[in-house]
C-alpha cells in the first residue's frame, strides 16, 4: 500500500483520525477502522466505535513503512517511520468493493 493507492485500497485495520469536518463533533475521533459502508467508516477508538460519515469529514490515515504485512504494518504504524496521508472523505464515498475499481486519478493531498 502506498499513499497514492490508499483511497482505492482496503481501509480496515488502518489507524485514522478525523482532522476536519463540517460537523464539529466528528473532529478528533481517532482509532482503527474496523468496517466500512458506502457512506460511513466505523472507527473503533478508546471510547467505543463511532460511525463517521465519509462525505462530511477529512481523514488522516497512518501508514506503516513500505509494503509491510498487516500485523507488522500495525506495529510499525506506531513507529517513527509511519507516513500520514490526508484524504478528503468525499473521495471515499463508494461501496467498499467498488472503491478499488475507480480509475479516476487519485487526488489525495
Amino acid at each position: 500500500m502506498h499513499p497514492t493507492t490508499l483511497p482505492r485500497h482496503e481501509l480496515a485495520g488502518l489507524h485514522v483520525e478525523v482532522v476536519e469536518s463540517r460537523n464539529a463533533d466528528l473532529v478528533g475521533i481517532a482509532g482503527d477502522v474496523v468496517d466500512e459502508t458506502m457512506q460511513t467508516l466505523v472507527v473503533a477508538g478508546a471510547s467505543g466505535s463511532k460511525q463517521v460519515p465519509k462525505a462530511a469529514a477529512t481523514f488522516r490515515f497512518r501508514l506503516g513503512g513500505g509494503e509491510a504485512q498487516c500485523a507488522s504494518e500495525r506495529a510499525s504504524g506506531r513507529g517513527p517511520r509511519a507516513e500520514r496521508v490526508i484524504v478528503d472523505g468525499e473521495r471515499l464515498v463508494a461501496r467498499p468493493a467498488r472503491r478499488t475499481e475507480t480509475t479516476t486519478p487519485n487526488k489525495w493531498r
Binding site: 500500500m1 485500497h9 482496503e10 480496515a12 485495520g13 504485512q69 498487516c70 500485523a71 478499488t100
Partner: peptide, 9 residues
C-alpha cells in the same frame, strides 16, 4: 493486495 489484507484482518 486487498484480498490478502482482508484475509489477514
Amino acid at each position: 493486495e486487498r484480498v490478502e489484507r482482508l484475509h489477514d484482518l
